[in-house]
Simulated assay, not measured.
Amino acid sequence: MTVLVLRALGLGDALTGVAALRGVRRAWPGHRVVLAAPQPVGQWLAGHGVVDAVLPTRGLSQLPWPWAGPGGAQDAPGCLAVNLHGRGPESHRVLQATRPDALVAFANAEAGHVGPDWDETEHEVLRWCRLVRSVGGHCDPEDLRLGPADPPGGRGQESGPGEVIVHPGAAAEARRWPAARWAQVVAALAAQGHAVVLTGSEAERGLCARVRREADQGDAVRDASGRLGLQALADLVSAAPLLVSGDTGVAHLATAYGTPSVTLFGPTPPELWGPTIDLPRHAVVWHGERGAPPRDPNASRLDPALAQVPVDEVVAACESALTQLPATGSETTTPSWPDRPARAPGVPTPARYAPG
C-alpha cells in the first residue's frame, strides 16, 4: 500500500512538516510514503529517508494518480491520503480525486470531510503532529531533526572555517528587513573578527551584493547567493556557528541541524512559526503584540513589527548566540504538545494497512 501525503509548499513549510511525516511512517510502518511536493524539496527529503518518493507537484494542481514512480511500477487507486497542506476544501478535493481508501485531514464541511478541528492559534509544527497523532502516528517536535550540527565528513566545499551565515532575503516584502540594516549587522559581525557568508536565491543576488557593498568589510564577507543548491545550503547551515535571517525557510534548516540562530519575525508571531526545540540555541527578535492575530506574511510592504526591529538588538542577539549565552530582550517560543488523542472517526487503523 501507498500513503500519499500532500504538502506542495516551499522549504520552510516542508521542514515544519518533517515531524508529521515521520509520524505517518510510524502509523503505517512498511508502507510506501509518497510526498506530493515541489521536486527539489521533496527529493531532498527523500534523500534523508523522510519519505520514499516525491510526486512533483506545484500548488494545488490535480495529481496524476495512479502514478508510475521512479521504479516504473504504477501505484494503484485506493491509497491512504494525508493532507498536510491545509484545512481544505481545495487541498482536500485534490486528494479526494485520487480515490483514496481513506483521507486523513482536518474537518471541512464544504469538502464533506470529518476530522479534527483546525486551531488558528496552534504552532505549525504542533498542528500537523496533532493531526497525525489522531490516527496513531506518534510524533513531536523532536522529530524535526535532520542531523547533528557537525555532519560526518566535515564542511562542504562551499563552507569556509567558522563562517557566520547572514541570509537577508525572504519571499515577500513583508518579511524583508531593510538591506541597510542587514549591512550594519554584517559590518558589526565582521568588525568583531567573524567571517561572514551571505546566502540567498538567484533572485536575491542583487540584495546580497548591496548588503556586502554597504557593509564595506572586504574579504571578511563572502557572497554565495545564487550558487548554492539545497544540499549545499544545508551543508553550510549544518556546519555554521550561527545563522542570522528573517522568518524564511533557511531559519528552519537551523532548527533541523541544531545550528544556533537569530531570526527576525514580523507579520507572523514566533509562537506560531518559531523554533520549538533547542530553545537556548535559537533567539527570536520580534516587536509584535502578543496575542494579536498574525498579519499577511506575503504582503507587498514591510511589516510594521519587523520595521521596529533595531540593528543594535540584532547585533546583541548575535553576540549572545556566538558566546552560547541566551539572548536577552528577545521573545522565545515555549514548546508544548498534547497527549495522543483518540483516533479520528472513519480512519483505518494501522493494522488495516499492515504488510500482507
Rank of each mutant, 00 (worst) to 15 (best):
P141L: 11
S201D: 05
V33N: 09
A240M: 10
R352E: 05
L4R: 15
A46P: 09
P304W: 06
L146D: 01
A254R: 13
V18I: 08
A239G: 14
G206K: 12
P66Y: 06
L322G: 10
L95C: 11
E90K: 14
Q157G: 03
L253M: 14
P270R: 14
E120F: 09
L6W: 12
L144C: 08
S238K: 15
E204H: 08
Q324F: 01
R127L: 13
L198W: 07
R281W: 01
A111R: 09
T334C: 07
W177I: 04
T332F: 07
R181K: 14
A305T: 07
A239M: 12
R301G: 02
A299T: 07
R222L: 05
R213G: 04
E214I: 00
A224W: 06
A105V: 08
L243R: 14
P38F: 11
Y257V: 01
L306T: 01
W65V: 03
L322A: 10
G200H: 11
E331H: 14
L189K: 14
H252F: 06
Q62L: 12
R99S: 13
G162T: 02
R340A: 07
H138P: 09
D278L: 12
A215N: 04
D303E: 01
V211N: 00
Q39D: 13
T334D: 02
G206Y: 04
P341T: 06
V135P: 04
V34C: 13
A254L: 06
G136W: 08
L242Y: 04
S225I: 01
I165L: 06
L9M: 12
A220R: 15
V197C: 12
P341L: 11
S201P: 05
P178N: 02
A53E: 15
A203V: 05
